[in-house]
Nucleic acid binder design. Structure first.
Length: 262
DNA sequence: ATGACGGAAGTTTTCCGA
């Protein structure tokens, strides 16, 4: 079974790339962030024609998330229950593996707030959002041990996840407060699947559009897949797929792919 | 010092992302 996450930075622009990627990478489930589409404009028919069921939660201009799955999603949740939020950032549901009788996986796809700058109101919102997420994920994990939390976390967990950790020290995505929140999620009984394996040094999931950052491989690892301890023995691989970043008009993020044995 | 690049809104310029 394969699961993936991808911040597409506008699904209206990136839909052809998503469909091409799925044709080459027929994962069982894919969560998308930054769809930037209201639900009435969501390209449901095109995605269903590609063989995927889809759940989505969007808004105008910003944010927006979706969950594509080979088998229909069940018990879908939009945003963090009990956390009043105008911003569409979370979609969760239970999905099965196609053609297997294996137990369902609880998938949570999330677009974590950016935070803009550590002294900003947006950072305060990010902190509140992270508090609410943690409490909710703790409850979800208790109810569904076979849980995967994945998406654009907008947090670089460690200095090795940053191309220039000296320049980024204390900057947004790298503050001690954000990193403490990441560790608190790990403390719930989740594991960073990417770090279960030896990985190439300077592995990033995002590169700035500016300054030839991709060509110079100057990026951050801010897109993550965390798996519940119950699933850890099933984890076979976790990789960042840089290929779509080489497309014309790419997203600034690359997909991250998790392989589980069935 | 502070922009760059890219997307969206919407109308010529701004906000936002990371």
């Amino acid at each position: 079974m394969k699961l993936a996450t991808w911040n597409v930075n506008s699904l209206a622009v990136r839909l052809p790339q998503v469909l091409d990627w799925l044709a080459a990478n027929p994962v069982d489930a894919l969560v998308l962030q930054e769809t930037k589409l209201t639900d009435d404009k969501f390209p449901r028919a095109e995605i269903e024609a590609a063989g995927y069921a889809v759940q989505f939660h969007g808004q105008k201009t910003y944010n927006g998330v979706a969950l594509l799955s080979r088998t229909p999603a069940q018990d879908t949740v939009r945003n963090i229950p009990g956390f009043d939020d105008e911003q569409a950032r979370v979609i969760g549901a239970s999905v099965g593996a196609e053609g297997t009788a294996g137990a369902a996986i609880r998938v949570i796809g999330a677009y974590f707030p950016n935070g803009q700058a550590p002294d900003s109101d947006k950072f305060q919102y990010k902190m509140r959002w992270l508090e609410a997420l943690r409490a909710w994920v703790a409850a979800e994990l208790a109810a569904h041990p076979r849980l995967v939390l994945m998406g654009d976390f907008n947090i670089a967990p460690e200095d090795r996840d940053v191309y220039d950790p000296v320049a980024w020290a204390g900057q947004i995505h790298c503050t001690p407060e954000e990193r403490a929140h990441f560790q608190a999620l790990i403390g719930l009984g989740l594991v960073d699947a990417f770090r279960l394996f030896e990985q190439p040094p300077k592995s990033w999931s995002w590169w700035d559009y500016r300054n030839l950052a991709f060509r110079k491989n100057q990026g951050l690892r801010i897109d993550h897949i965390l798996v519940g301890a119950a699933l850890r023995p099933a984890v076979q691989a976790c990789v960042i797929d840089k290929l779509p970043r080489k497309n014309e008009r790419p997203s600034d993020h690359a997909p991250v792919v998790l392989t589980l044995d069935d």
